[in-house]
């Protein structure tokens, strides 16, 4: 078995890249593959609480974050310097890494897929 990191960088509302990246994560998990997530750039907005997208804007992918535990996806990493000023507005399940740990993250998986 391989361990996989899915790195989301796209805005959840500008395209369906985040959606398709998360779909892949769920499938990998369903097939009992070890998979972690990490978020950077525009994908960080996925973490903001109280999102209420209209159907035209896309699915509410934020809601899926709370469901990840049922897929045994245990880690959602971000780089600590990218944290929002007020952590209270963010999804609480994230693991934030300092710059060194963040850089190392990408070499600790057999494969990294970006969306």
């Amino acid at each position: 078995m391989k361990n996989t990191l899915i790195h989301l960088t796209s805005s959840p509302y500008s395209s369906i890249a985040c959606k398709e990246g998360l779909d892949l994560a769920l499938v990998l998990a369903t097939f009992e593959q070890k998979v972690d997530l990490c978020l950077s750039d525009a994908a960080l907005s996925l973490l903001t609480k109280h999102q209420q997208p209209e159907p035209e804007q896309g699915k509410n992918l934020h809601k899926l974050l709370d469901g990840l535990e049922f897929y045994d996806i245990e880690n959602v990493f971000i780089e600590s310097s990218s944290l929002a000023p007020d952590p209270a507005t963010q999804w609480p399940g994230i693991t934030s890494l300092d710059s060194a740990a963040w850089s190392e993250l990408f070499s600790s998986y057999q494969q990294v897929f970006r969306f």
Binding site: L26, A29, T30, E32, K59, N60, L61, K63, L64, D66, G67, E69, F70, Y71, D72
Partner: peptide, 17 residues
């Protein structure tokens, strides 16, 4: 489950839930 997470679970997440 669907209303909470906006996804229909496959077998494994269903059994866990």
């Amino acid at each position: 489950f669907y209303h909470e997470f906006e996804v229909s679970p496959a077998m494994r997440p269903l059994t866990k839930a």
